[in-house]
Amino acid sequence: MRRFLSSPSAVVGTTLLVLVLFAALFGPLIAPYDPQEFHPLARLQGPSASYWLGTDQFGRDLLSRILSGAPATIAFGVFSTTIGVVVGSLIGVIAGVSSGWVDSTIMRILDGLLAVPDLLFTLLIVTVLGGGMEHALLAVAVAFTPGMARIARSAVLSVRTRDYVRAAVARGESGLYIVGREVLPNALSPIVVEATIRVSFAIMIGATLGFLGLGAQPPSTEWGLMVSEARQFMFRNPWCVAIPGLSIATAALGFNLFGDALRDALDPRRSH
């Protein structure tokens, strides 16, 4: 752990991540105002002693809205990634372990799905399912699945040719033992690293969907939606678009930096 925190980017990443997760868990509880409460006399204000981050077009406190929107925004990223990672890894592990025609069929289909950009794929699925938070979440999960399957497969393939796996095959171990005890524990770290980094993309895509009106719906305080609602007033008070925008960036940055640091720490070439 001490080695992990020896690089500055790991320290920054961990700090941001803790901050973001804290906001996601306790944000609504510590918000100074009701996020939906109008303050007609204090509309579109910059930061002040009473409104730390300023107010929006209805005079709602931006800090309170950011804090109350944190759970929706972060949970979206975490859950959609988790579903995508679990399903994708399952497919990838099956492809990597089975090899032969099963593998090549799965891979060809994945190649096809991967040729469609993530955001476009998500938009297509959202259109089919209809907008809204749950559907958007599902759409991102589906869009992530082929990429994760590919990473899981290559992780499995790289482990499969290691001598300790060959030793297990030579011993006559069952397929289940080899996959469960020898391959998976060693293939897990690249999957976890990729998943962590992908949470940041999921947060960004989720916010983008909210911005386009295809994700979270009013009166939600999801951050992407906040940017979209405040856009009309952005020239009068840049704070009301900058604050939610930078909050998204902070959350994405936290997961991104943490994932990269995790990769460095887990890379066997860099240990010892």
């Binding site: 980017s9 916010a207 992407g224 952005m234 020239f235 678009v241 940055l253 991104n256």
Partner: peptide, 23 residues
């Protein structure tokens, strides 16, 4: 570059508009 990868396009676009394309 870390900041760049953490900003979704709609945020970058909005911020650019605020600072470089105000009426």
């Amino acid at each position: 570059s870390y900041l760049g990868t953490a900003l979704p396009e709609f945020v970058t676009a909005t911020l650019l508009l605020v600072f470089l394309a105000a009426p």
